[in-house]
């Protein structure tokens, strides 16, 4: 399956910037999935679980509202706060400089 780039940015810093296969997000009118080559979209997200799927594994993080923007195969998840990022492979800890 085709991959696309996912960036996760919180109000404090960028926490994730990797290639992923699929996303499931808590939209205001229900959970929805995003695959590569999705039409350009801006969606308001409510509090809930975000599932990030990559080749062999699946990660789940929690957000408390935010936005998803996707265009040209780059998805940006903007969330003021995010939980559970520590366990996700490839997450930026903010310690490296």
């Amino acid at each position: 399956m085709a991959d696309f780039r996912l960036q996760i940015v919180t109000s404090q810093r960028t926490v994730f910037d990797e290639s992923v296969t699929a996303l499931t997000l808590p939209g205001e009118s229900g959970y929805f999935g995003v695959l590569a080559n999705h039409a350009p979209i801006v969606s308001v997200l409510k509090a809930g679980k975000v599932t990030i799927r990559r080749a062999a594994k699946e990660d789940e993080v929690e957000i408390f509202g935010g936005f998803l923007e996707m265009s040209n195969n780059v998805a940006t998840l903007l969330a003021e706060e995010i939980k559970g990022m520590e366990t996700v492979a490839g997450a930026k800890t903010g310690k490296e400089e």
């Binding site: 979209i41 801006v42 308001v44 265009s71």
Partner: peptide
């Protein structure tokens, strides 16, 4: 862009 759930809400 598709604006979900509605442009106003976005």
């Amino acid at each position: 862009y598709l604006l979900e759930p509605s442009p106003e809400r976005v």
